[in-house]
Write a protein that binds this DNA or RNA. Structure first.
Length: 552
RNA sequence: GCGCCCGUAGCUCAAUUGGAUAGAGCGUUUGCUUGCGGAGCAAAAGGUCGGGGGUUCGAAUCCCUCCGGGCGCACCA
């Protein structure tokens, strides 16, 4: 498919150049040309405000500039007409014949590759997300990062990047010791011993299950094992659980990166030494500090505690240097709002070490609130409340979890409506979109029974305005992908899919393919059209990591 | 107190990052349809874009200020 906004931008560049050569326009600096979809149908299929932006530097009135450009736009197969409107907008209309023919393009690209755009040009990209330490089951708080990260990775792949999905974790340190001691206590309790879970340890039921499993397998033979043993057992069981939960959402990783390896290969200490050598670290109050203020940040940070241990920020810096050294052209970090203050320090640290942090892009998302029947459900550990992602999936299903979380811009403080997510009606956008795919599949089941096929269909027979409008909407897919990838905002595709479904269902109701009054040739053409629609819905659902059912 | 994010229709949210008359769904109201490709179709009402000021051809979007909410502000990760 064609990236239409870019095709129009190219046309405009050529138009401006031609207008200059002919003397219709003076010389001036050309800004970046933006082409967008106007909100009203009488304003064309695509439009640009470029003439207004040029008005100052070209020292002319925007309508005259627009007129001059419009007259010099070269012809193109997809272009029907050009018009100057309003204060100086240039509006474009797509050629109907070309639009009809795109049905074939869509079908030939197929549901796995449709709409691919080559923005990445084969560059290496990494998306790091979830990255929860193995101290307990994944909570709903991580849902957003999991879905956003995975979908963004899908979209980057569609945009021509070679993508790696990475999970960063730490299985060392005080929290993990507490975890080990907590499990040890649960195990000893099963033996009837008088053991207590540490006050600041982990009190969740999941450690009881793990302890019970250990007891079932080993009886009381582990009574003399130390906390390290239990830590390893807890970690293994919890990680298995986390992977299982994420797999239910269709989320998988290529690399699990252990923070500990940054100590093993000494890169944390090397980074600290390097900061000192470069004059960005100093000793004070018994600790070592990083001069974050030199990089415009509000205050300096401790990087080595008075106990001699590095703080968490140091391995984070070393980790990002490690990522840069691995040669990624684009490094995406997906963080929750609780990290919004720490990442600038990490980026400053990377810069202080002499690396260019510009490939690193940080996406911060706000938190999710679960809402049921107008009431907020608190995410406490109290019995009967949702806390884990597993429970949320049990409750509403993986597709609904993915769609609901995806259908919000990252910066919104989203509310997850459990009641709506459970509904199996068109009120629920998940079913509304999937139902579009189901209905397309249904048409082909029906066609098969009647012995009708779309072989040799002539798409030029498609003339219903609703059909043509829907095809034009389908043609936006590459632009939606490009826009989402450039801004690292996966939510646009969720809204696009819903918009498309809203156009689809009325068309499906009104524009019948297999009705007895529809001439056979037109039946073929319409079947072809519905095949294209099915392809687009399958592609969108696939990018969002959702299933594309044939039945519901 | 300081920093980051948010505030758009009754509710949940968009708005291609400074463009044309701010858009959807749900809910409400009104018709149609409910004999066949399950959960349908059409229309209407609903807005001081939190308040105020500024920047310019043009602001929901940028700047200042006030109000309200979220998250952070550790020698915890």
């Amino acid at each position: 498919m064609e990236l239409l906004s870019e095709s129009f931008a190219t046309l405009l560049k050529q138009g401006i150049e031609a207008a200059r050569k002919s003397g219709a326009l003076p010389e001036f600096e050309t800004p970046e040309i933006t082409v967008s979809k106007p909100s009203r149908p009488n304003q064309g299929d695509y439009a640009t405000p470029i003439a207004m932006q040029l008005a100052k530097s070209a020292k002319a009135n925007p309508r005259q500039i627009a007129q001059a450009i419009a007259e010099h736009i070269p012809p193109a197969p997809f272009l029907d007409k050009v018009e100057v409107a309003g204060p100086g907008f240039i509006n474009f209309w797509l050629a109907p014949r070309w639009v009809q023919e795109q049905v074939e393009t869509i079908i030939s690209e197929g549901p796995d590759h449709l709409g691919e755009v080559d923005i990445g040009r084969g560059q290496k990209a990494q998306v790091e997300f979830v990255s929860a330490n193995p101290t307990g089951p994944i909570t709903v708080g991580r849902t957003r990062g999991a879905v956003m990260g995975d979908t963004l990775a899908n979209m980057l792949e569609a945009a021509g990047y070679r993508v790696e999905r990475e999970y960063y974790f730490n299985n060392a340190g005080r929290q993990m010791e507490l975890l080990g001691r907590s499990l040890q206590a649960r195990y000893l309790q099963l033996l009837g011993r008088d053991a207590l879970v540490p006050e600041d340890g982990y009190h969740g039921d999941y450690l009881r299950w793990i302890a019970a499993a250990l007891y079932a397998e080993h009886g009381d033979s582990l009574a003399d094992r130390d906390w390290m043993y239990f830590k390893e057992k807890a970690e293994a069981a919890i990680f298995a659980n986390i992977r299982h939960t994420l797999a239910r959402l269709g989320v998988y990783f290529d690399v699990y990166f252990n923070e500990k390896s940054l100590y093993d290969d000494n890169s944390v200490w090397e980074a600290i030494e390097e900061l000192k050598k470069r004059g960005y670290a100093y000793e004070a109050e018994g600790a070592t500090w990083f001069k974050a203020t030199e990089f415009g940040l509000p205050k300096d940070r401790v990087i080595v505690k008075s106990t001699g241990e590095p703080t968490y920020i140091m391995p984070d810096i070393a980790y990002h240097v490690n990522k840069l050294k691995r040669g990624f052209d684009l490094i995406v970090d997906i963080f929750g709002a609780d990290h919004q203050d720490s990442y600038p320090n990490v980026l400053a640290g990377v810069r202080a070490l002499g690396y260019d942090p510009s490939p690193i892009k940080v996406v911060i998302h706000q938190f999710v609130t679960l809402v049921e029947g107008g009431e907020t459900r608190r995410m406490s550990t109290r019995k009967g409340e949702f806390v884990t992602l597993d429970e949320l999936i049990d409750e509403v299903g993986a597709d609904a979890v993915r769609y609901f979380v995806l259908a919000r811009s990252p910066e919104s403080h989203m509310e997850f409506d459990l009641e709506l997510a459970r509904k199996q009606t068109n009120e629920n956008p998940v079913y509304y979109i999937q139902n579009a795919h189901v209905r397309c599949a249904g048409i082909f089941r029906q066609a098969k029974e009647r012995g009708v096929t779309d072989d040799g269909a002539d798409v030029h027979l498609l003339s219903d305005p609703r059909e043509l409008a829907l095809i034009r909407k389908m043609l936006e897919l590459p632009d939606v992908l490009a826009h989402s990838v450039r801004r690292l905002e996966p939510h646009h595709i969720a809204f696009y899919a819903l918009d498309l479904a809203r156009m689809f269902h009325p068309t499906y109701e009104e524009v019948r393919a297999l009705h007895s009054e529809v001439p056979p040739e037109l039946q073929k053409a319409r079947l072809r059209f519905y095949r294209a629609a099915k392809t687009v819905f399958a592609r969108l659902l696939g990018l969002m990591g959702m299933s594309a059912p044939d039945f519901m």
